[in-house]
C-alpha cells in the first residue's frame, strides 16, 4: 500500500483515503447501531466485533495513505496490530465472563452436533 503513493497523483490518493475513512466510519456506526438494537448480550458482541475489526482497519488504512511512507505509518500499523490482537481476547473474555455470570443467550438455538432442530426459547 505504501509503494503506491509515488505512482499515483495526490488527488487519487486523497480520494482513496477518503473512501476508506467513510467506509470505516460507516461500519463503525453500523456496529454501534447493532450494539443498541440487537436483543441480547451475545448478539451485541458480534456487532461490537464489526467496529473492532474492519472499521478500525479501514480508518487506520485511510490515515496510513495520508501519512505516506514514514514512521507514522508504522505506528498506525502497530495500533492496528494491537487492536486486532487484543479484540478477540477481550471478546472471548467477555463471553466467558457472561457465561460465568449466567447471562442467558436469548432465543439462541442450541446445536450440539453439526445439525440440530429448531428449539428457540423466548
Amino acid at each position: 500500500m505504501d509503494l503506491l503513493p509515488p505512482l499515483f497523483p495526490d488527488l487519487l490518493l486523497d480520494l482513496l483515503s477518503m473512501a476508506l475513512l467513510i467506509g470505516g466510519v460507516f461500519l463503525s456506526i453500523s456496529g454501534a447501531v447493532g450494539v443498541i438494537r440487537f436483543p441480547d448480550f451475545y448478539t451485541r458482541l458480534h456487532a461490537a466485533g464489526v467496529t473492532d475489526t474492519l472499521s478500525a482497519g479501514m480508518i487506520l488504512a485511510g490515515l496510513m495513505l495520508q501519512a505516506g511512507f514514514t514512521l507514522v505509518t508504522v505506528k498506525l500499523l502497530f495500533i492496528l496490530i494491537f487492536l486486532w490482537y487484543t479484540s478477540p481476547v477481550a471478546s472471548h473474555a467477555l463471553a466467558r465472563a457472561a457465561m460465568h455470570t449466567r447471562v442467558e443467550p436469548a432465543e439462541a438455538e442450541v446445536i450440539d452436533a453439526d445439525q440440530g432442530d429448531e428449539s428457540s426459547a423466548n
Partner: peptide
C-alpha cells in the same frame, strides 16, 4: 441491562477512543 453489556460498551468506547486520538492527531 447486565454488567457484561456495560463492559462491552466500555470496551467499544475504548477502541473508538484509540481511533479518535489517531484521527485527532492528523
Amino acid at each position: 441491562p447486565t454488567v457484561c453489556d456495560r463492559i462491552l460498551a466500555v470496551n467499544m468506547f475504548g477502541t473508538k477512543t484509540v481511533l479518535l486520538i489517531a484521527v485527532y492527531g492528523f
